[in-house]
Simulated assay, not measured.
Amino acid sequence: MEENSLPEEDVEMIENSDGKDIVSNEASPMVEPFIGMEFESEESAKSFYDNYATVMGFVMRVDAFRRSMRDGTVVWRRLVCNKEGFRRSRPRRSENRKPRAITREGCKALIVVKREKSGEWLVTKFVKEHNHPLLPLSPNVRRNPHLSQTPDEKDAKIRELSAELSRERKRCAALQQQLDMVLKEMEEHSNHLSTNINNVIQRVREIESNTFTKL
């Protein structure tokens, strides 16, 4: 989801920050988000809420964002619980297929962060309550990094993998061409040997024929 209509104050104007406390990536995951909480970057905000989600017992999902109309950079981001919203109902292709597990339950828990003119990111909305049980995890538990990727990061990863696949296909095509050339040379060499052998046999037969004639 992307919205391009932003008021002028949402457009980036980088300034130096003086005397303000900014939450960095090293912020304690036990700190609860609050409106007015500041981060030095969007990544810091995502890292903080991801750690908070791990401790509280839910999984963060990077949701909607808005871009600046001036330079196209992200200036607003919504981070939600992965059980936010509801799964779209689709007709089943086969009665034999098992229905997919329900992973969306309409959870409203989220935070919204917005980039200020100073370049800092400010929490402008926080909903703490979940409508489902929470399963707290240790912060040391390794999680799938793809769960917290933004749409931009996913697109970049897809482009990277597509480029790598294209390179591998070209490499395979070049190797196949070289293999075909080797096989062709081997076939030509085999045909040449067969011709030489046939010539030798024919020559031997001619010699034997001439010998018997003289006798």
Score class of each variant (00 low, 15 high):
K154I: 14
T150K: 01
P151G: 02
H146Q: 07
S190V: 00
Q149S: 11
K184T: 10
N198P: 01
L179C: 04
N144W: 02
A163S: 15
P145R: 02
R159C: 05
E185C: 03
K170P: 00
S194V: 04
M181S: 14
L183D: 09
L175C: 03
Q176P: 01
K170G: 07
A173L: 04
Q149T: 08
Q177H: 11
S166A: 15
K184F: 04
K170W: 00
R167T: 11
D180R: 14
P145C: 00
E188Q: 12
E160C: 02
P145T: 00
C172V: 08
K157A: 15
E153R: 06
E160H: 09
L165V: 08
T195Y: 07
Q149N: 10
D152F: 10
K157I: 10
Q149H: 13
L179S: 13
S162R: 14
M181F: 09
R159W: 06
K154A: 09
V182K: 14
K157C: 07
R159T: 04
E168K: 12
K157D: 09
R169A: 15
E153V: 05
E168W: 00
L193D: 03
N191D: 08
N198M: 08
S190A: 12
I158L: 12
D155S: 06
M186N: 10
E188W: 02
N196M: 13
P151H: 07
K184S: 09
E168P: 00
A174H: 04
D180S: 06
A174T: 04
N196A: 12
V182T: 07
M186I: 03
A163M: 08
E187R: 13
L165A: 15
A173C: 03
D180A: 11
H146C: 05
